[in-house]
Write a protein that binds this DNA or RNA. Sequence first.
DNA 1: GCATGATCATGC
DNA 2: GCATGATCATGC
Length: 468
Amino acid sequence: MNYLKNKDYDETDAKSIESYSQNLIDKSFQDVLNDDLGNNVEESTSSYFEDRSFKGGLGNLIEQHFFHYEPNNSPDPDFPIAGVELKVTPFKKNKNGSYSAKERLVLTMIDYMTLIDESFETSHFWNKSKLLLLIHYLWKKDIDRLSYRIQYANLFSPPKQDLEIIKNDYKIIQEKVEKGLAHELSGSDTLYLEACTKAATSADRTPQPNSDIKAKPRAFAFKSSYMSYVLNNYIMKEHSDDESIIKSSTTTPFEDYIKNKISKYKDYSVEELCKKFDIDSDTKPKNLGSLIAYRILGIKGNKTSEFEKAGIVVKTIRIENNGKIREHMSFPNFKFAEIVKENWEDSTFRNYLADTRFFFVVYKYDNQGILRLKGCQFWNIPYDDLNGNVKKVWTETVNVLKKGLHISEVNGRLTNNFPKSSDNNICHVRPHARNQNDVDMLPNGDYYPKQCFWFNNNYILSQLDITL
DNA sequence: GCATGATCATGC
DNA sequence: GCATGATCATGC
């Protein structure tokens, strides 16, 4: 093959590979082809790599036309002697000017049968993934794939504090498979490393040990929240105000560490906690419940690097003194015009719930009407709930919008036929807006107050640990 | 007391 | 000004 030329780098030395890769910076993929093949690149070559259905196309282009080696499916890293695995990965610019990873970084397929016997350190996964060469290109909507520009080329290996969490994530996935629950794996079971679905079609299933139920094929991947953090803090080295919860090395798993810290203040009243942590509560801020939790965790602001990396969403929950939860739980708004174009399987809401781990901070009113901290809980939605009732409500919502929302006005209040909290045990649709003028356009062109999915209060109660 | 519509508070 | 998390208000 004509691209197997002499190599202008030492393939046995990671640093040499990295410094050679930095010649890619500021180049488009077309530039890389032109540099290698001259300016008369054949149309068939360009269109071969341009084809979006060829998922690894841009990676292969870099392998063949920049590093000059043959792409392979080897269990070893791409540069086996140097131990370096090449990853070509997109990032994007957000509306507010910040940057984030466009997607998760898929590392290796999971073989459920062998996983349960592989320790992290000696695993096929870690052998291949411990030292990555990240080639970051800036993704833009509506431009040719070959016009994307490469911006960064860096060796990357997770720093020690991240590695502790990644090892524990690996263990969590391993234990679920060991229990014969590979079919119930979810990206939100874990923090930085996830088992993400990876199949040619959504119907693909594969065997697992300790269960006859076949499971979706999955791969180890760094979550997109983790990759965003890596990009901003380790690659771009932007100054970050994020504070870490874990200040020094600990053997306690992250979530246990958090739970232990919070539980030290179990049964303290909100008032006492505000005094203790010097929080001004005169204005009754609505984020008081989460502020207290951050202060207990030693965080001065309202975000932490660990939660950012894991994409954890904080929710405070208040239990009344009758043991019930009064309020339903809101989620980000959906756009009417967008949701009607979605399929459930790759819908915004399904992806959000499948990918998000929640941190519940739970308070309860005692018999004197004093609000007291009870503890906290990490939670992600159970597989059956997501694919059962939530799917049902989502589908019904889309159907209502497609058929035309029925709206009437009763006593100055708008009422509609979206799924109600009385229609389903888990979730429903309700307004989520600043006021009645905070509207979004329906498929028929009319405007209607913005809406979101809500979890029913009773469902949330049913999900809380018995100890809370 | 619940169901459902309406709106507040914060932070970027 | 908007997105998001949190809570209020009213009628049955």
